[in-house]
Design a protein around this nucleic acid. Structure first.
Lengths: 241, 241
DNA sequence: GCAAAAGTGTTAATGCTACACCCATGT
DNA sequence: ACATGGGTGTAGCATTAACACTTTTGC
């Protein structure tokens, strides 16, 4: 490193430091729709627009710990599936000051999702409308349950788009789909989750076999109740190998 | 958000901000070995240990711009393949002060890799020894060309391990392998790169067909020179669809 | 001609798709 | 009995792996 380079690096470190935040993409599949939790902004900039829940990272707090803290405080949730997504560092992404944001995404089963909504009234549920640039992962639009568009603040549409892409990519070879389901679930429910996330139809026999052959499912012997037709068997996600 | 939560977030943002750096994993395949560029530390902590080249992110500089600047200044390289990898934010990852580091990984063809080494004498080439926890992505060991172990400072062994994992994962479905080859290359060279990165042997006919059918290769009509046997055809990576 | 590596065809195995069918339950 | 969705078997298709083989160059 030349002396000039050393000094410029030293200056940057010594004097002006960016703020660092964590933003959470809290996702679930509710009634065959991919949804995320959003917060309405009360202040400028982007007043009235919608944002992902987030907060500053404490100086004595790891990024993962900050994400877990925000998950607990904002959504009253712990031990959800949580994974770092990407770090957004454009200079002008927040007009107030330089803020670098580490995006995490979390997956919740729908019933806990509903409970989090009830416990934290400032949150709103949003259906994600994924325009079929979905392959490449552009920004995503959000709308409320009655179809009204929810404008997204800052670069949060990009964050949501990337989260959808990552979720789709990991669906096949990892167990993320189980994080979107209750502890016991039918194969039909598992297939519905896959179809909603991918935005395609899958055919039943092939899907069943792939899942059963994967060794990640464990039959409970119990059956669904309340259906007016043949009750389906309930399965459980086998975490151990 | 409760008032207490608001204040804690406000305090964190207002007063103590972490430093943010970018660390670069500069990788290539040199003589059938996966290699990375490392810098020897002259100062405490970890004096004498080896680190990834890195530097602070300027307050008026995006993360991507910082990564490109470091790539140019440290390795005298521009327009290499560059991609954000992961953000490392453990509290004690640097004993001096709180530093959050955004890791980027870059891929270079071996001849430009050698040129970068010559232009920047503080850099050293390191072979990566990937213990066969490679599937799960644990830390990686580094050693010099003559087999001597190079101890890695901070959490840089984890960064290297994650980079290897990402490279392996993207090898099949994306064009990253071409970033590790010169502009014209033989199918044998392409297969060697795949085998080195994956750490397995592949059989020739299947590999040839997969590559030719993928539509990402363009025959140049030219042939290899200097071999004492049948010269292979040279191909080029077709960037346009 | 021989060695060495490029390049190609042919067959076997595998996995996935599609369709058809049977099963169990509430009404 | 019948409607409804759960669950399973089988045949066809496509993709991939494995092997043997031919081709082209330098010595």
């Amino acid at each position: 490193m030349s002396e000039a380079e050393f000094l410029s690096a030293y200056d940057a470190g010594r004097y002006e430091r960016p703020s660092v935040t964590v933003d959470l993409i809290l996702m679930s599949v509710v009634e065959d729709a991919l949804t995320a939790l959003l917060v309405r902004r009360d202040e400028h900039p982007h007043q009235g627009a919608w944002t992902l829940p987030g907060g500053f990272v404490g100086i004595d707090e790891s990024l993962d710990a900050a994400a877990r803290r925000l998950l607990a405080s904002k959504a009253r949730m712990d031990n959800a599936y949580l994974e770092q997504l990407y770090t957004f560092g454009a200079v002008d992404r927040d007009p107030r000051t330089r803020i670098i944001s580490v995006a995490y995404f979390a997956l919740l089963p729908p019933e806990r999702f509903a409970a989090a909504l009830k416990a934290a009234p400032e949150l709103a549920l949003s259906e994600l409308v994924v325009p079929w640039s979905g392959e490449t992962g552009g920004p995503v639009e959000a709308c409320s349950a009655d179809g009204e568009a929810l404008p997204l603040a800052f670069d949060h549409a990009d964050m949501l788009g990337l989260a959808v892409l990552r979720l789709r990519g990991k669906l096949d070879y990892s167990g993320v789909a189980f994080a979107l389901l209750p502890e016991r679930f039918t194969l039909r429910a598992l297939q519905d989750v896959h179809e909603t996330v991918l935005g395609t139809r899958l055919n039943k026999p092939a899907f069943r076999r792939r899942m059963l052959d994967s060794g990640r499912l464990e039959a409970t012997g119990e059956r669904e109740t309340g259906a007016s037709f043949r009750p389906a068997e309930l399965y459980r996600h086998r975490t151990a190998v």
